[in-house]
């Protein structure tokens, strides 16, 4: 059981990074469907930077920069040029998939260098790892994974306890009102879309540098799309994103687990569960009309000052 739960935490981590990234993006009022592409860009650039230098920090840096750069394209097109967000996001996914596959063509099958493997071996946190059940599941993981906890905490504090977090939410709810109160709407959108992209990039890099620790083509395999759905599941709340990611991470490895226990359920049916669960969630969340569970009011709309 402990083993399964610990594996579920690992499986949830790329989802968590990407979901946090998309939450920040959507809080700025922009729906970026390019998460899958951004994760792949982060995965490959993180891997290439890590592989070539052997330095785990440079690997992370590569992923952050690649994710942010991909998101910058999206930001320029949808913020400055007001292109349709759905179509631009899909295009970003096409581009990112091609980019990762091309950049990675000479790395397929190569493992990460020993120095990185060592940097990302499980590191039990003193005291916390001694808690029964919770300790081995959550606190005997690697440093990269702990980074996702940190991102949840920092993200929550940022969104709900800081001035800029408040401004960001105002931009997503009503760009015009935020603008009128002196917030630089364009700047907020650009920085947060890029920060969101960087987090998506980290999610991809977690897969290539730590989880798989080897480069394989299309390593992200649809997780970016689940992250987009998880944002709704989490109703744009970083802490609920953690819970959602754990649930989906668990479901994604459940089939193998059941089979090894001798319970014969077709993996294809188990594979459907996360998607079916998302549908149930979005139906349920549309029924309860609590205000804090609703998407940012300006999500998907470009802001044009002259049209206020």
């Amino acid at each position: 059981m402990e083993g399964f739960l610990a594996a579920a935490v690992v499986a949830s981590t790329p989802l968590l990074f990407a979901t946090l990234g998309e939450i920040i993006t959507e809080k700025a009022g922009h729906l970026n469907l390019g998460v899958e592409g951004l994760m792949l860009m982060g995965a490959i650039m993180g891997f290439v930077a890590g592989y070539e230098t052997g330095n785990p920090l440079l690997g992370l840096m590569g992923a952050v920069l690649a994710g942010a750069a991909g998101a910058l394209i999206f930001a320029f097109l949808t913020v400055s040029l007001r292109a349709n967000q759905v179509v631009t996001g899909l295009t970003l996914t096409i581009f990112g998939t091609g980019f990762a596959s091309f950049m990675g063509k000479n790395y397929v099958g190569l493992p990460v260098p020993v120095s990185i493997k060592e940097a990302f071996t499980p590191y039990p946190i003193p005291l916390l790892s001694d808690i029964p059940l919770i300790g081995p599941v959550f606190f005997e993981q690697d440093l990269f994974l702990y980074g996702s906890y940190l991102a949840v905490i920092l993200g929550t504090l940022y969104l709900y306890k800081t001035r800029s977090g408040l401004n960001l939410r105002a931009v997503g709810e009503s760009s015009a009102a935020a603008d009128a109160s002196g917030v630089n709407v364009t700047l907020y959108k650009y920085t947060h879309i890029c920060a969101g992209g960087a987090l998506c990039g980290l999610g991809g890099a977690y897969m290539s540098l730590s989880m798989m620790a080897v480069w394989q083509e299309n390593v992200v395999a649809g997780r970016g799309w689940i992250a987009v759905a998880l944002v709704i599941f989490a109703s744009w709340n970083p802490i609920k994103a953690l819970i959602g990611a754990l649930l989906f991470g668990g479901l994604s490895i459940l089939g193998f687990r059941l089979q090894s226990m001798g319970i014969h359920v077709s993996q294809y049916w188990v594979d459907m569960l996360p998607y079916a669960a998302t549908i149930v969630i979005i139906i349920l969340s549309s029924r309860k009309n609590k205000k804090e569970n609703q998407p940012p009011a300006n999500l998907g709309n470009a802001y044009f000052r002259e049209e206020r």
Binding site: F76, V87, F95, G96, T97, G98, F99, A100
Partner: peptide, 22 residues
């Protein structure tokens, strides 16, 4: 030329056409 290059080109061309709408 790997298929990935064609994907990237598709992406780039689309970015420009989407941008031109503005």
């Amino acid at each position: 030329i790997p298929a990935a290059v064609a994907d990237m080109m598709q992406g780039i061309i689309l970015f420009f056409v989407l941008g031109s709408e503005f």
